[in-house]
Design a protein around this nucleic acid. Structure first.
Lengths: 331, 331
DNA sequence: CTGTTAGCGCCTTCAC
DNA sequence: GTGAAGGCGCTAACAG
């Protein structure tokens, strides 16, 4: 592969001159510029970004560290991130932590070695604090996505779990549901804590009892099995819920599948709502849809602002409201 | 950020010795190794992959160039690719061409400059040949995904469009459908050509007429509007189809939405089948589901084989069969 | 307007 | 078992 020296030799100039025409920087005569351009062409010269990085201490690469690209929420986040990154001249490396702190730590190490210019991270939970602190220690700019880390201030792009939950609960309750099960994510993730809190507050607001037997905690991951539905359906009639609120889309998918297996009809036998869109074909589901694309898009914008020093402030917080979309599953 | 020199100084050894302990290569005494490790620890030294790349001429980065990560098919491809890449010690940069040859070309240029070790590409169409040839010219290993490029042999991981189409058509026809519309992708994409051909052959196999008015060509992208459904529904009763076969998931989503808008019930008023899964919540759709995860997983495996020279052969072709999943939309 | 020198952080090669 | 010299491809800083 041709180097700047090869080009220089062919064009009968110094490597520095070649560098100048490549980077369109510094004064160059039309004629030498032409010579160089021809040499570049005939040698099929392509600048080596790796060598540049060594000098510029900049890679023009961003890291997108999410929990699972398969989750339609994060798929859209990724799309938004990549679109904005391209616009700003960055490439993005993506990684899936699978909500696993160890996997997350491994990726953090890798991205540190890669000298990425910045990191967009959806933390796997509050324990991610140590990973984020590693970023801080190494002065690599980052923006947190979707989940706050307990006891850590930072630039962040978030949804509004309270608003989304209240909207969903209001809809359910005003449609006559009094016994609503919550199938939540792990309490070490901020969104799960907030969704539970808003769930409880909503019940209280409508003077409905908070029944512990109707509150479950699982994880946000895609699962093939669950016993929660069995437990719910075995509840005595006085307790058995008429509606289920799943705290994210993957929980919803798992529960729905089980509900179908058990022969229940949605919404006739059980109303069903959840947080997050469930994918392109979601015309059936009542959801609190978050503007996932914007999470990624704005996140990258914020991050690059920070990297390139265009931003005066720190700990900027963008909160994006969800949209309550009422569909068949709860009617 | 600490360099190998800082570590060397602190440990009172030469940089070379530090390099040796980092890479666990060459003989080192226990005691110096310990000294070095301590220095690394106290200085929080992290090897600079960028500098390494300059010497090794290897970046341990793969490029995944697909058309749209938002497409559930490619989402899974990406997941499979990343999983295998992690296993093999590679990171992956992803890019979305949006089925646009110009965008694709731009990315090809970027990845060439980045000196990625290999490329996994789902070509935007037959015109991608020039981009792939650029890869060949620059000797960068690649594996093609999902779509063959007319007149180009290469390592490739593919689905079986014929088999999937025949399966779907068989199901429809054996359920009594005689007028089946095909809403296909662009004919410059191999999968569209093959699906159309298999569609026609299936009709002929069952002695059914091939009606040009029932064959449409659109693109594989997500769209918010379409006139195709209107055209179909305005057809005289003698022609109006009783079933629709969408050539990919995005086409299916667009058409379904329109069908709903027009007040049609699936499958009562119109049966509906498509190629590719439509996302995690696809329990409604009859589809030819491709093992998308394996496309990515095996693709990376093949690619890294090539990169690391473990593979003797060229132009290896992996064909992954689809699974016909019959669900409500066609019953 | 163009060229020279030096060095980014690391590793290969060859000495000792 | 350890170190010194040199260079990967490029560009900043200075010189002319």
């Amino acid at each position: 592969m041709a180097t700047i020296y090869d080009v220089a030799k062919l064009a009968e100039v110094s490597p520095m001159t070649v560098s100048r025409v490549i980077n369109q920087k510094g004064p160059i005569s039309k004629s030498t510029k032409l010579k160089v351009e021809q040499a570049i062409e005939t040698l099929n010269y392509i600048p080596n970004k790796t060598a540049r990085s060594l000098i510029s201490k900049t890679t023009k690469i961003l890291s997108l560290l999410i929990t699972d690209i398969s989750n339609p929420f994060f798929t859209k986040v990724a799309r938004g991130a990549e679109d904005k990154a391209l616009q700003l001249g960055y490439q993005v490396i993506f990684s899936n932590s699978d909500e696993d702190i160890n996997k997350e730590s491994k990726y953090i190490q890798m991205l540190l070695e890669s000298r990425v210019d910045g990191v967009l991270i959806a933390p796997s939970g509050d324990h991610s604090k140590k990973n984020v602190q590693k970023l801080i220690k190494n002065r690599i700019p980052f923006v947190i996505l979707d989940r706050e880390i307990n006891g850590l201030e930072s630039d962040i792009v978030l949804g509004n779990s309270h608003e989304g939950t209240r909207g969903l609960m209001k809809h359910l309750i005003e449609n006559g549901h009094k016994k609503i099960a919550l199938i939540n994510g792990p309490s070490h993730i901020s969104t799960a804590r907030e969704r539970k809190q808003a769930y409880i507050e909503s019940l209280q607001f409508y003077n409905l009892p908070v029944v512990e037997a109707l509150i479950f905690e699982t994880d946000y991951k895609q699962r093939s099995e669950t016993t929660i539905i069995d437990i719910l359906l075995d509840l005595p009639a006085s307790l058995k819920p008429t509606a289920i609120f799943a705290a994210n889309n993957f929980i919803a998918v798992t529960m729905m599948k089980k509900l179908k297996e058990r022969g229940l009809n949605i919404p006739k036998d059980m109303a069903f709502v959840c947080f997050d869109d469930v994918g392109p074909m979601s015309d059936f589901f009542t959801v609190a849809a978050q503007p996932a694309y914007d999470f990624g898009y704005l996140g990258v914008q914020m991050l690059v602002d920070k990297i390139e020093g265009n931003s005066s402030q720190n700990n900027r917080k963008i909160v994006l409201p969800p949209e309550i979309v009422i569909r068949e599953s709860s009617l």
